[in-house]
Write a protein that binds this DNA or RNA. Structure first.
Lengths: 106, 106
DNA sequence: TCGATATCTTTATAATATTGGAAATATGGA
DNA sequence: TCCATATTTCCAATATTATAAAGATATCGA
């Protein structure tokens, strides 16, 4: 994962409304949710929601598929994993005895 | 992990200079680095670095220990793990057959 | 096929927040 | 005291946010 991609994903999630939106999508699972359903769940004006969905989409954390008059958004779970991998890459100068807390190894 | 803590950690990492600083610390490992060493590694003015270290510290991603005239910064690896756990919590409405990409389960 | 309605996005703008870095300030050690 | 190390204060430049208003696009019924 590129550094700019990582920065973009982190920036996308580092905002309360977007973090809420992403978590609603995570809970909904791969089947996704229409924009309106997200807005209803979180009580967000449609223009505001659309702005944030665009950010999540362009960061690669969320996909969008058009279905009839709905746009269905769903999370890209693998992006979250890649994010973590980037953050802990090359840790501890390669020494394998270092303590990474809950991660266990490096 | 509280939502505000998560937001704070994400915001701390969603900035190129701070992401660079954090990664340098991750690579250095638990023994940590003095502010000056970080600044030298990344060629950052001291005032700028100090500002960003303060952000990383207050987000809980980085610890600081005073040793003589130096301040030694080190990463909190477990915080990264907790971040991930938060992002994928309660995914897919508890259905265990959902595909979480590289994470494997939910 | 035409307009009414539903769903969602784009544009524009004002309010707010973040960033980098010079200068001044603290703190520890010789 | 004087130097080395690091932080704090300040400010202008830049970026982000929320939302109203207007603009797309899709469906449906007459």
């Amino acid at each position: 994962m590129e550094k700019q991609t990582v920065l973009s994903a982190l920036a996308a999630l580092a905002q309360e409304t977007r973090l809420d939106v992403f978590r609603v999508l995570v809970q909904a699972g791969p089947q996704g949710l229409a924009a309106g359903a997200i807005g209803a769940a979180l009580d967000i004006p449609s223009a505001t929601l659309s702005f944030h969905l665009k950010e999540l989409k362009s960061s690669g954390l969320v996909r969008c598929e058009r279905r009839g008059r709905w746009r269905i958004y769903s999370p890209d779970f693998s992006a979250v994993g890649q994010l973590m991998d980037f953050l802990t890459a090359n840790c501890c100068q390669g020494v394998d005895s270092c303590d990474l807390g809950s991660k266990g190894d490096c």
